[in-house]
Design a protein around this nucleic acid. Structure first.
Length: 494
RNA sequence: GCGGGUGUAGUUCAGUGGUAGAACACCAGCUUCCCAAGCUGGAUAUGAGGGUUCGAUUCCCUUCACCCGCUCCA
């Protein structure tokens, strides 16, 4: 109980800080807001850009065998037929009319019977289970649509509307009193063309990955790709989620950082392990505390049908452990699907075997916004001893690297400080502030996550050194003002 | 979408069927030689729409948003 209250408090504090300091605002706030849509403010956008740049550098440009690309959000409708999203990207949900819980219909055990003949069967996990005597009766029925059996005709004796629910059902209260299942398609539809009636209906992409797969030949040819090689991409994706929430954790418009690493199928285990490790280490590298990170391997029953294996990087959010990134062994499912649908060859020539092969793929799929929330939650702390709120962002991703202050607004200190600020801001994101007491200005920057502050004081007038103050330790050292850029660059470590 | 809770300033909260208040934050000035000090002044709010009423921020209805749960995933 107390735990729950504490959790909410931390999320509330992060949300409030995000707004106060200009990290994240609610979308369209002056019109009452948009359900789980969020905008990034001045500090948020810098943090996000730094995050994406770090990913781009560490996954793409620092590797000789990975390249980037940027596909459009709008794609040919057939892409989503091939990928399986049109057919599979929806959830049939049922409401219990008694206890009001909603659940996926195929997750609840259903038992049906015919009121005339002796037919009884149950539907569990998308499969019809019956005794052998009645097996043939079910040839034409689709086991995944449990709802169709309510009041349906008996497939055995053909009596009309004779099938009733025998036993159910609601995984929560056990009641058989359920609503008809509703289908929720999770893809955003829109019209491609200015006139709605003549325009074709297309989708906003629900993931960035397919933009990579459909460009496989283009990229492989232009970069002369030899296995193994990867293609990465950062971009927006859209899903009409049934439930959203937890601040920016799950929203309908979100940004992904995805990389498809194409390999020979027999090397799948090696590269799968390799990327799990790489990606896990990356989160530590951007400053996330190791004790708040873990890997979770998917059980066989939660794997997508095409996936051989999947492991999530999870973070311990204030609301609990949740997924940040999935590393999946997708075999060559996606390329094969596009080969089938488009009729084009999507393969590379393997010199070892003198054959064209359709490579398998290890996918790393990370959520930008989730990582943002991770960074903010992980960096947030309250320094009781010094009565301050601090975001301990790593210098590399901090929106502002250094703040420059005159200790007091006289004796030429503001002018000297402004000059230092001008020099620094040519090299990195800096911030100049002369308003209020020095302590207040330090506090403001602590909340913004600025790792360093430089203060011009009376000693500066004498010997040309300034105070360098570190955010987390509050330690102060003196640095010659013409060396600050070099010192800072070294401390930021880029 | 369903159930429960909540909407008052930038934030966190008071309060009232009759002029809406505080703290912190913010802005300007003074003061100030290193960690939210002080003084003076200032700007800013009842989520939206409708109803009842002489009068609604308060009561009622609708709607929107946020939080928690169900569920799902990046």
């Amino acid at each position: 109980m107390t735990k729950k209250i504490q959790r909410n408090e931390i999320m509330d504090k992060i949300m409030s800080l995000s707004k106060r300091r200009g990290f994240i605002f609610q979308s369209s706030e002056i019109y009452g807001g948009m359900n789980s849509c969020w905008d990034y403010g001045p500090l948020g956008v810098e943090l996000k850009r730094n995050l994406k740049n770090t990913w781009w550098r560490d996954v793409i440009t620092s590797r000789s065998n990975v390249v980037g690309m940027d596909a459009g959000i709008l794609m040919h409708p057939k892409v989503w037929i091939a990928s399986g999203h049109v057919e599979n990207f929806h959830d049939p949900l049922v409401d219990c009319l008694d206890c009001k819980t909603r659940f996926r219909e195929d997750k609840a055990p259903h038992k049906f019977k015919c009121t005339k003949c002796k037919l009884k069967f149950r539907v569990e996990g998308g499969k019809i289970i019956t005794n052998k005597k009645f097996e043939e009766a079910f040839d034409d029925l689709n086991a995944s649509e449990v709802g169709v059996y309510f009041n349906s005709d008996c497939p055995n004796c053909k009596t009309e509307s004779s099938i009733v629910l025998d036993k159910i059902g609601c995984p929560n209260c056990g009641s058989p009193n359920l609503s008809a299942p509703k289908q929720f398609n999770l893809m955003f539809k829109t019209h491609y063309g200015p006139s709605e009636d003549s325009a074709s209906e297309i989708y906003l992409r629900p993931e960035t990955a397919q933009g990579i797969f459909v460009n496989f030949n283009n990229v492989a040819n232009s970069m002369r790709g030899k296995l193994p090689f990867g293609i990465g991409q950062i971009g927006k994706a859209f899903r009409n989620e049934i439930t959203t929430g937890n601040f920016i954790f799950r929203s309908r418009e979100f940004e992904q950082m995805e990389m498809e690493f194409f390999i020979k199928d027999e090397e799948n285990a090696k590269w799968y392990d390799y990327w799990i490790n790489e990606r896990f280490e990356w989160y530590k590298k951007i400053g996330i505390k190791e004790e708040n990170l873990r890997l979770r391997k998917h059980e066989n029953d939660e794997l997508a049908h095409y996936a051989r294996a999947c492991t999530d990087v999870e973070y311990k959010f204030p609301f609990g452990w949740s997924e940040l990134e999935g590393i999946a062994d997708r075999r060559n499912y996606d390329l094969e699907q596009h080969i089938k649908e488009s009729g084009k060859k999507l393969s590379v020539f393997d010199n070892d075997t003198d054959q064209h092969i359709v490579p398998s793929v290890i996918e790393t799929s990370a959520g930008v916004d989730r990582t943002m929330l991770t960074i903010l939650s992980d960096a947030y702390w309250e320094d009781q001893a010094n009565n301050r709120v601090v975001l301990s962002l790593s210098p590399e991703i901090a929106p502002i690297k250094v703040a420059v202050f005159p200790l007091v607004n006289r004796d030429n200190m503001p002018e000297i400080a402004e000059k230092i600020y001008d020099d620094i801001s040519k090299n990195m994101a800096a911030f100049y502030d002369k308003a209020g007491s020095i302590g207040r200005r330090y506090r403001r920057q602590d909340e913004a996550g600025t790792p360093f502050a430089l203060t011009v004081d009376s000693q500066t007038l004498e010997d040309g050194t300034v105070t360098l103050r570190e955010r987390d330790s509050l330690e102060q050292t003196r640095v010659a003002k013409d060396k600050v850029v070099a010192v800072l660059i070294e401390k930021i470590g880029k």
